[in-house]
Simulated scan of single mutants.
Amino acid sequence: MAEILAMKRAPEAEGPILSSQEGDILRLTLSNPPANVLSLEAMEALQTALDSAAADKSVRVIVIAAAGKLFSGGHDLKQMTAHRADADGGKGYFEKTFAVCSVLMQSIVRHPKPVIAEVDGIATAAGCQLVASCDLAIASDQATFGVNGINVGLFCTTPGVALVRGLKPKHAMEMLLTGEMVDAATAREFGLINRVVPREYLAQVVNKYAQTIASKSPSALKLGKEAFYRQAEMGLAEAYDYGARVMVENMLGKDAVEGIDAFIGKRKPEWTED
């Protein structure tokens, strides 16, 4: 464990995604200036990095951040518009773009490792969808959020899937219908993000969250995250039945035995499962 905590992996570029690891925390940085758009290439690179992290036992928590003044301006509309010259008017390219995006967002929710969004600057359209899809989101006091497709004749339907699952429906619809940007304080009130912190402390606070989560049982985190999202899609009785089965499975696991023994013995637990 000490070797894992001491490990620091040098940043490496994966196309428009910069990947770096310190200890058991992996940072995936959108590095696609100036707007860090979620081009097809950016989404595929992020998907590849997430898939790799899922099987990497040295990674316990993932942070998605961004370089520059914007978190993400969403899909690359210039790239998409260029494909209107295709024989099918761009239909095939549009279908591929939204399919790749949908898989990416679902893979964050289904990922076995907790994913934290570190947001500074503007997060709009699919960029806001990315924030909403993460398990936790912490933003600087300079961050702003929006789903402003309606301003150019597009209702942000796919971002709406993520928003309505994290925000109250009327708050989600307010953002989708008006296309107006909301500040970080309002985004927190709406339930889009967890905390707002001064810009200069953003990375520090995110790292503290990540380290706290990384110190927990990997098997419990994996089991619990999956159960959290699955039960949310069920009716009340079904959710309780499912939740009880998961609790039994969790109780029978080695880490639960170790954790409870450590609690009773007033010592620090040593996790054995991942």
Rank of each mutant, 00 (worst) to 15 (best):
L236A: 09
M234L: 10
S215T: 06
Y240P: 02
M234D: 03
A214C: 03
M247W: 14
Y242T: 09
V246A: 05
E226S: 14
L223I: 13
D241R: 00
L223G: 04
Y229G: 05
M247G: 13
S215Q: 06
R230H: 12
M234F: 03
F228C: 14
F228W: 11
S217A: 10
G235I: 02
I213Q: 02
Y229M: 07
A220C: 10
A237L: 14
K225C: 02
K222W: 00
A210K: 00
S215A: 11
A232H: 11
K225L: 09
K216V: 06
F228A: 08
E226P: 06
Y240H: 11
F228Y: 14
G235V: 07
T212C: 13
A227V: 05
V246H: 06
A214L: 05
E233R: 08
E233L: 14
R230D: 11
R230W: 07
L236Y: 02
P218E: 01
G243T: 07
S217D: 05
T212M: 10
G224N: 12
S217G: 11
K216N: 03
A232P: 05
E233F: 08
E238Q: 14
L223R: 12
Q211Y: 01
L221S: 01
A220V: 13
Y240W: 08
A210P: 00
A239I: 10
G235Y: 01
V246S: 03
Q231S: 10
A220L: 09
Q211V: 07
L236R: 01
R245N: 10
Y229W: 14
A214T: 01
S219R: 10
S217E: 04
E233P: 03
A237F: 08
S219T: 15
T212I: 15
L236Q: 03
Q211T: 09
G235T: 12
S219F: 13
V246Y: 01
L221T: 05
S215W: 02
K222L: 02
M234P: 07
R245T: 08
A214V: 04
L221E: 02
G235A: 14
E233N: 11
G235Q: 13
S217P: 04
S219N: 13
L221M: 14
A237W: 02
T212A: 15
E226I: 15
P218Q: 02
Q231Y: 06
T212W: 13
Q231F: 04
E238V: 12
K225F: 05
A210G: 00
A232V: 14
A210H: 00
A220Q: 08
L223V: 13
D241A: 08
A232D: 09
L221C: 06
G243Q: 01
K216W: 11
L236N: 02
A239G: 12
A220Y: 04
S215M: 04
A214N: 00
Y240G: 07
A210C: 00
Y229D: 09
I213G: 06
E226R: 13
I213M: 12
K216C: 07
Q211M: 06
A220D: 05
R245D: 09
D241P: 01
Q211R: 10
M247E: 09
Y242N: 06
